[in-house]
């Protein structure tokens, strides 16, 4: 359970990506989370709210894009997904496979509400 330190890293990335005077405008931080990223999205969400409360980022929340664990078989070229972590091809039994996705833990976008939006 290291969601707290992961939340802190996300907070750092937001601070480095958004000008100081616009931090309070941040509404959504989009995060890609692979099945095997090693973090639990709900728990990460909770930790992020806890450490951003009473800071300029208090109105920011995390939005997750879940990335499935996907594997490609080099023997039969089929692609398959599962959330168990199996890498053996279910079609031909091949073990020469490549993991395509499922290990992501990445901040992709930060959405801000501008002055203009507030007036409208």
């Amino acid at each position: 359970m290291h969601e707290l330190s992961v939340a802190q890293s996300i907070l750092d990335i937001v601070h480095q990506s958004v000008p100081q005077d616009e931090l309070a405008d941040v509404r959504i931080v989009r995060v890609k989370v692979g099945t095997f990223s090693g973090v639990v999205a709900d728990s990460l969400d909770f930790c992020f709210s806890a450490i951003s409360a009473e800071t300029p980022l208090a109105k920011a929340r995390l939005e997750f894009e879940h990335i499935p664990f996907a594997v490609e078989c080099r023997q039969c070229q089929k692609t398959f997904e599962n959330d168990i972590g199996f890498v053996v091809c279910p079609v031909c039994g091949g073990v020469d496979t490549a993991v395509l996705s499922g290990r992501e833990l990445q901040v992709t976008e930060i959405e801000l509400e501008n002055e203009k939006d507030k007036i409208a």
């Binding site: 992961v6 959405e111 939006d117």
Partner: peptide
């Protein structure tokens, strides 16, 4: 509304 594209690994420092 404006969007800043980031594309950074959360554990990049590590």
């Amino acid at each position: 509304m404006s969007i800043i594209t980031v594309e950074r690994k959360v554990l990049e420092k590590n």
